[in-house]
């Protein structure tokens, strides 16, 4: 679904922000994108969403050459930014979720809002909680029927029920075969969901692979591994509603 090789990106003539990024992701997989602040996670997401074009390298997204056809890439991907207040443009839930949709698809949008238990369409967006705003942003992204969903810090600032809801949505998307890339600082809520992990540090890819290969290296890359892993228990389900723990083995 995504194939990146030797990707470089720079706002010319400044030095490169991303250097030598290469990874592959299959349909329906979840990739956890981690790294310290300023590592380049959001820039990589913008590249994958077709909002920026890599300076050099190869990038194929959903069978499209992203180096030459950003427009198609943008149609096939949806990016949910961290800043919900800047992403929500409508005045009410209904207006925002229907933005840019044809009249035929508005009913579908309102139906999705109901299924996601978003507040009534006439609810002003300024009275929504942080979690509800996040959910609204996710809903607007899903309505674009993307093949790849890119999420920038979807768990940041959410309380426990909020994290559970976002996790539920990620799992439902996974079940529906949607490929997802999730940038995050806190690995706990994603540890048992992600199939692969990519670590960025200073714009460079420092690790890529499944948890059992990447997690032992995290400490040296200024990223904190999940508590259960550090305690030698492997990857435990985040809450009691989850599928069994993955086969990943704890560090010796």
């Amino acid at each position: 679904m995504i194939s990146a090789g030797s990707l470089h990106f720079a706002y010319a003539p400044s030095p490169p922000i991303l250097r030598d990024i290469g990874f592959q992701l299959d349909k329906g997989q979840i990739l956890g994108l981690v790294g310290p602040n300023g590592a380049g996670k959001s820039t990589l997401l913008a590249l994958l969403a077709g909002l920026l074009t890599p300076s050099t390298g190869t990038l194929r997204i959903a069978q499209v050459d992203a180096m030459h056809d950003n427009k198609t890439v943008r149609r096939k991907t949806a990016l949910v930014l961290q800043e919900a207040d800047l992403t929500i443009i409508g005045t009410t839930v209904g207006e925002d979720i229907c933005l840019g949709l044809s009249p035929k698809r508005r009913a579908e949008a309102l139906d999705l809002a109901t299924r996601l238990r978003l507040p009534a369409p006439e609810t002003p967006v300024h009275i929504l909680s942080h979690g509800q705003k996040r959910k609204l942003c996710l809903a607007t992204a899903l309505l674009r029927r993307p093949e790849i969903l890119l999420l920038d810090e979807p768990f940041a600032g959410l309380d426990y029920p909020g994290i559970r809801e976002v996790r539920g949505m990620l799992r439902a998307n996974q079940d529906n075969g949607l490929t997802q890339i999730v940038a995050c600082h806190d690995l706990e809520p994603l540890a048992d969901l992600a199939d692969l992990w990519l670590v960025l540090s200073n714009g460079q890819q420092t690790a890529f692979g499944p948890a059992q290969e990447v997690f032992p290296l995290l400490e040296s890359m200024d990223v904190r591994a999940p508590c259960s892993w550090r305690a030698g228990l492997g990857i435990l389900p985040w809450d009691d509603r989850h599928k069994p723990p993955s086969a990943a083995t704890p560090p010796s």
Partner: peptide
């Protein structure tokens, strides 16, 4: 800058997204 990215990410930077609803 973030809002510009958000508008582009939501695919709202094209004429069809800004047509009167009725």
């Amino acid at each position: 800058w973030t809002q510009t990215l958000a508008v582009a990410a939501r695919n709202l930077d094209h004429p069809q997204a800004w047509q009167p609803e009725r």
